[in-house]
Measured scan of single mutants.
Amino acid sequence: NQASVVANQLIPINTALTLVMMRSEVVTPVGIPAEDIPRLVSMQVNRAVPLGTTLMPDMVRGYA
């Protein structure tokens, strides 16, 4: 089972991601792999991401 990136807090739209906003968790469906967390830092979300939501590739500008 692969860990995915999950929002550690509410992340408002257009917010640049920081390490404290994300955690890794084994979830279904699988989202962005946890090993990509360092790559996600400073990328912006293109929608509001509620606490506990799995980050999907289409939620992060420039990721996919």
Results as ranks from 00 to 15, higher is better:
Asn1Cys: 04
Asn1Pro: 11
Gln2Asn: 11
Gln2Leu: 15
Ala3Tyr: 15
Ala3Gly: 14
Ala3Asp: 05
Ala3His: 13
Ala3Glu: 08
Ala3Asn: 10
Ser4Gln: 02
Ser4Glu: 00
Ser4Pro: 00
Val5Leu: 04
Val6Thr: 06
Val6Glu: 01
Val6Phe: 02
Val6Asp: 01
Val6Lys: 04
Ala7Asp: 01
Ala7Trp: 02
Asn8Ile: 10
Asn8Trp: 05
Gln9Glu: 14
Gln9Ile: 07
Gln9Cys: 04
Leu10Asp: 12
Leu10Ile: 11
Ile11Phe: 02
Ile11Tyr: 00
Pro12Cys: 04
Thr15Met: 07
Leu17Glu: 00
Leu17Gln: 00
Thr18Gln: 07
Leu19Gly: 11
Leu19Lys: 11
Leu19Ala: 06
Val20Tyr: 15
Val20Asn: 13
Val20Ile: 10
Met21Gln: 06
Met21Thr: 03
Ser24Val: 10
Glu25Met: 15
Glu25Cys: 03
Val26Phe: 04
Val26Thr: 12
Val27Met: 07
Val27Glu: 03
Thr28Tyr: 13
Pro29Asn: 05
Pro29Asp: 05
Gly31Ala: 04
Gly31Met: 02
Pro33Tyr: 08
Pro33Ala: 11
Ala34Asp: 14
Glu35Asn: 13
Glu35Ala: 09
Asp36Phe: 12
Asp36Tyr: 14
Asp36Leu: 11
Ile37Ala: 10
Pro38Asp: 15
Arg39Thr: 10
Arg39Lys: 15
Arg39Cys: 03
Leu40Phe: 02
Leu40Tyr: 02
Val41Cys: 04
Val41Asp: 04
Val41Asn: 05
Met43Gly: 04
Met43Lys: 14
Gln44Cys: 04
Gln44Trp: 14
Gln44Gly: 05
Gln44Leu: 12
Arg47Gly: 08
Ala48Arg: 14
Pro50Leu: 08
Leu51Trp: 10
Leu51Ala: 12
Gly52Glu: 05
Gly52Thr: 03
Gly52Arg: 05
Gly52Pro: 00
Thr53Val: 14
Thr53Leu: 11
Thr54Met: 04
Leu55Val: 07
Leu55Asn: 00
Met56Tyr: 08
Met56Asp: 05
Pro57Tyr: 10
Asp58Arg: 06
Asp58Pro: 06
Asp58Ser: 10
Val60Ala: 01
Arg61Cys: 04
Arg61Gln: 13
Gly62Asn: 13
Gly62Tyr: 09
Gly62Ile: 04
Tyr63Thr: 05
Ala64Gln: 13
Ala64Arg: 03
Ala64Thr: 13
